[in-house]
């Protein structure tokens, strides 16, 4: 990150990967997977707009630093093994 105006390039070029930006704070509901019911069809992974689901051994692994809690995974899951839990609980 540049500290002074002289360090800013004349043409702004974005170079830092946005993984450093934490968007998990936007979340009101947290998706929680019940792995015993999961059939590992990866529908949740396929439809995640925040690229916050990775393929785990037992099922989806959530990246809670970036998941915004939209609930698409819970809605699309064919066996309904993903639960949206309020963040304040």
């Amino acid at each position: 990150m540049p500290q002074t105006i002289d360090e800013i390039p004349p043409t702004p070029i974005n170079t830092v990967d946005s993984k450093t930006v934490k968007t998990g704070g936007w979340r009101a509901f947290r998706p929680v997977c019940h792995y015993e019911k999961c059939i590992r069809c990866w529908t949740c992974w396929k439809f995640c707009p925040d690229v916050s689901i990775s393929l785990g051994e037992e099922g989806p692994i959530y990246d809670y630093d970036h998941c915004k809690g939209c609930g698409i995974c819970a809605n699309e899951c064919p066996v309904k093994c993903i639960e949206m839990v309020p963040e304040n609980k």
Binding site: D17, S18, T23, W26, L55, H66, G69
Partner: peptide
């Protein structure tokens, strides 16, 4: 493990500024 129906390689990183449930992001 079920076979993935779309390529696994990810060229879009998390941490973008799209709204919750954004369709354009998926596109």
């Amino acid at each position: 493990m079920a076979k993935l129906t779309i390529p696994e390689d990810e060229l879009m990183s998390p941490g973008h500024m799209g709204c919750l449930g954004c369709g354009a992001t998926l596109a």
